[in-house]
Design a protein around this nucleic acid. Sequence first.
DNA 1: TCTGGGGTCCTAGGACCC
DNA 2: TCTGGGGTCCTAGGACCC
Length: 421
Amino acid sequence: MFGLVDCNNFYVSCERVFNPSLIGRPVVVLSNNDGCVISRSNEAKALGIPMGQPAYQLKELIEKQNVAVFSSNYVLYGDMSHRVMTTLASFVPDVEVYSIDEAFLLLDGFEKQNLKELGRKIVETIVRNTGIPVSMGIAPTKTLAKVANKFAKKFIDYKGLCLIDTDEKREKALQLTAIEDVWGIGRQYSKMLTYHGIHTAWDFTQKSKAWVRRNMSVTGERTWLELQGNPCIEMEHATAKKSICTSRSFGERLTEYAPVSEAVANFAANCAEKLRKQHSKAMLLTVFIHTNPFSTSQLQYFNQKTVPLPVPTNDSAELIHHALKALKAIFAEGYLYKKAGVFVGDIVPETPLQTDLFDTRDREKFGKAMQVMDSLNATYGKHKVRIAAQGFGRNWKLKNEKLSPFYTTRLKDILEVKATE
DNA sequence: TCTGGGGTCCTAGGACCC
DNA sequence: TCTGGGGTCCTAGGACCC
């Protein structure tokens, strides 16, 4: 059996833990740059605020209904997520952290009756220990655990826990699940399936295996099997990323090369840090820049450049060097830039080192410098020690006007909470 | 009229997830 | 005025090998 634990309205719940006056109120959290709504309290959902709605289109509603609005505070959410995951790991040995607010649990070896008790205990302990309310689904496959989780969330009588442990329950659940709500069925497949008269998860399971394979390839076939109780998607465990990307929209439009290059240098440094953290190096780097695609009045420009790295590397200075060279090749004057990003690919393990006959860089020396930089920054704060090209300008920085304090990670903010308490 | 029979690797694009 | 930021897997087709 598999369990799926999912935090309810996660980002909103994080804000509420440290600001209980938000409980009972409509609350939303916005994406980077205060762009779109990405988390909503139940009260905000009841007002009809959809997921992904641009904030500026909701201005009136927000004022009229006194909706509390927050910029996203990923430092806080990341720390709260860690607390939830650690608590889960104290109950079962095999936890797969699936996203910032979700985890799969392998529940093999528990008796049926114990399973319900265990689930109940997990749901109650998480909210008591972290303040974050969660829902849990338990079923014979991951896809069915996802289905069970939706019921745990939807029906208040379940008190956050739903088991699908008999064929009867499974059939009933599938009949009540719309096809577009199935894990693995996205917008395109929903459209195609609806066209073929398939409206529920149950309808889907009634199609032949060959039909599903023909129209939806092996991934669709797996979903089909999983919905019938045949597990084909196993537990996965954190492995090194095969590609890494850091990109941001700018708080204001940029026209000059200097601030764009500063931003790109920071994105490259960020990619380098992520590479070092997972002990790998990249062999390929891409830089992209573009104007605001939503604008109808401005001249549009999209461009990107990919460069092979002569020697696999995770050195900040080296990645910045190549990123800026690529940027120079694609930067064009006369546009209002909205977004840029750095992408690294062809990722290989840090060792063994692939050497290059003509490589003149003292990699041992620079590697040590990176280690020192990482350890200083771990103590004194992100990017406290940096490469000069990263600059101090900040004029490309994000808009986040409604940012909450770093309640759990920054001393000043922790003390502020204590003082108000 | 008839025109071999396998392979591998890479890339782009499309689907999906949070 | 104002619209996020990450990832994964699969397939088809082309280039190339013998």
